[in-house]
Amino acid sequence: MDEFNRLVSEQMATMEKLLFLQAELERCQKIEVELLALQEETDLESIQADIQLMKKELKEIQAIFEKQTEEVIDSYREMNLTPST
């Protein structure tokens, strides 16, 4: 009977470790999912910031291009209006 009680006690201790580890594993997996979501949000924010910066640069380049286009047109008009000698 002593052997039986010892084996049952060992098995109960093993079961407690098993349950503890399962609970810890589930807790860690939940944290992992949350961290992955946070990382994705951080990546999203970074990409959104990049997009805003590129939109600003695009507007600036478009304005420069429009100004250059006007200068080209004005230069062409002046060239055609000025008589050649």
Rank of each mutant, 00 (worst) to 15 (best):
Y76F: 15
L81S: 12
K67S: 04
Q52A: 13
T42M: 11
K55F: 10
E70Q: 14
M15D: 14
E32M: 00
S75E: 10
I61A: 05
E34I: 03
A37E: 12
F20V: 03
Q68G: 04
E34K: 01
E45T: 13
K59G: 02
E41A: 13
E66D: 09
D50W: 05
D74I: 11
T69F: 06
V72S: 08
I47A: 08
T82S: 05
K30N: 06
L19E: 03
D74Y: 10
M15H: 11
L53R: 14
L81P: 11
A49R: 11
A37F: 02
L21H: 13
R77D: 13
R27N: 03
L44Q: 09
M15C: 03
F20P: 00
Q29Y: 01
I47E: 07
I64N: 08
F65N: 06
T82I: 06
L21D: 12
F20L: 09
R77W: 12
V72P: 06
E60F: 02
R27L: 00
L18W: 09
E78A: 08
I51Y: 07
F65L: 06
N80G: 07
Q52N: 10
D43V: 06
K55L: 14
L53Q: 15
E24Y: 04
Q22F: 07
Y76M: 14
E40D: 12
E57F: 04
L81D: 09
L35T: 04
L81N: 13
Q22W: 06
E78S: 12
I73L: 11
E78W: 12
E71L: 14
E71Q: 14
E32G: 00
I61R: 04
I47S: 05
I47T: 09
I61Q: 04
Q52P: 06
L44Y: 08
E24Q: 14
D74A: 11
L38E: 15
